[in-house]
Nucleic acid binder design. Structure first.
Lengths: 220, 220
DNA sequence: GGTTGTAGTGACCAAGTGGTCAATTAGACG
DNA sequence: CGTCTAATTGACCACTTGGTCACTACAACC
């Protein structure tokens, strides 16, 4: 169920600094060669990969476009990551511990879930969930495995917050709602959900989550 | 919002009969040529297209595989439909009038929405919504346009069932839930939602929809 | 300053794609 | 039965893709 970006926080892999200048690539006496800086290259490639995977999904994302955005050649991408699949695995985040949403007042739990979700995904840099949904939807092996791994680990943690025999199902229903909202607002922007402000979205989502989870919410 | 398969009923295009025998294609003295039957060919191609688009999504679906499943050559597919995009448009359903869900007892409206949704998508032949979600998620132009067109027309109709100033948003939230459930159960089968029976799913969905829509449900 | 490991390049490849088209031939019509 | 139309084929094309590799030249180290 993934619990969407509530649980997606980057392990933040590489140093992510952007020392290197963009390459012209079209200019041309032979070699306007990029300054050597393997770490910066890796970071630039990963950042570009996240963006491109989010925009195009796994199948339509091309190594050449990722390389071009990172200001390197596609040969270098292959050198650093070996394959497109490995690049995806490196670019997308691993599961992190579930934020201690359960800690606060149970009455405000829905509000905190909604806010955490919207804020994380709204923060510009975080295209991970969108990329994952896009890519998993395409049906390729690699993203599908990634998706399932994240889902399993996230579900595991979330299941402990709620009680009752049906807890699993309600966790999945909540996840479905969040995935659907992500789809309607970011993947295929559509309807009112794509138009309203983040604050409004949080408000509506809070109400929806509260209603949805009522049967399994911890009693206050 | 699409309201998922509640509103997706095929205009049922072609005659869909399956007179023609499968081709061996590998056997070989020149021409084990298919019996001429353009309507049957079109129908077979469309059926194959629906299945392949649902399994692979637009980007990864290939005309050759569709042709092969339909028992024809990919040249014939091109002849009949002109382009891959046109094939998609022809294969996927147009919006139909919203079934008269609003007619019955308002108290059972959530139950009818849930049942209508699950039954339609569970009926084996109907891969339309899955294909559409897969393809739109991939971000290709053609399926995205199709998706938006369907969404707009469906939202229009559904909006009239509910009342209140926030009706649009709640319609979209419901759609998001259904899209998310479709995703979790069919596109990237995951968690309990992918395991439980159709009857159980309907039961849980009914509860979820009732809770979700409570603020805008017609008073009984 | 020379040596050297390797980051970075760009030409190359095989496979697969959507799309085109001339040639075949099944079937309808006289 | 002969004629003609068009459904169907399969060879073909240009292009893109992921992946390989021999080569270049930057920068660190002695």
């Amino acid at each position: 169920m993934l619990m969407t970006s509530c649980i997606l926080s980057f392990v933040s892999d590489e140093s992510e600094r952007e020392t290197t200048p963009d390459r012209t690539d079209s200019a041309g006496d032979r070699a306007p060669r990029r300054r050597r800086n393997p770490q910066a290259s890796r970071a630039a490639i990963l950042e570009a990969a996240r963006a491109v995977f989010a925009e195009r999904g796994y199948a339509r994302a091309t190594i050449r476009e990722i390389a071009s955005r990172a200001g390197v050649t596609h040969g270098l991408v292959m050198r650093h990551f070996g394959s497109k699949e490995q690049l995806l695995i490196s670019a997308l985040p691993g599961t992190q511990h579930i934020p201690e949403l359960a800690a606060g007042d149970p009455a405000t739990l829905p509000q905190r879930i909604a806010a955490s979700f919207v804020e994380q995904i709204e923060s510009s840099g975080d295209h991970a969930l969108i990329a994952l949904i896009r890519s998993a939807a395409a049906g390729d092996e690699a993203p599908m495995r990634l998706y399932h791994a994240l889902e399993r680990s996230a579900a595991e943690s979330y299941r402990q917050i709620f009680s009752g025999p049906d807890a699993d199902v309600y966790v999945d229903l909540l996840a479905s709602l969040l995935i659907g909202v992500t789809f309607s607002r970011y993947v295929a922007p559509t309807g009112r959900l794509a138009e309203i402000s983040a604050e409004e979205l949080i408000a509506y989502l809070t109400a929806a989550i509260a209603a949805l989870l009522a049967p399994v919410l911890p009693k206050h």
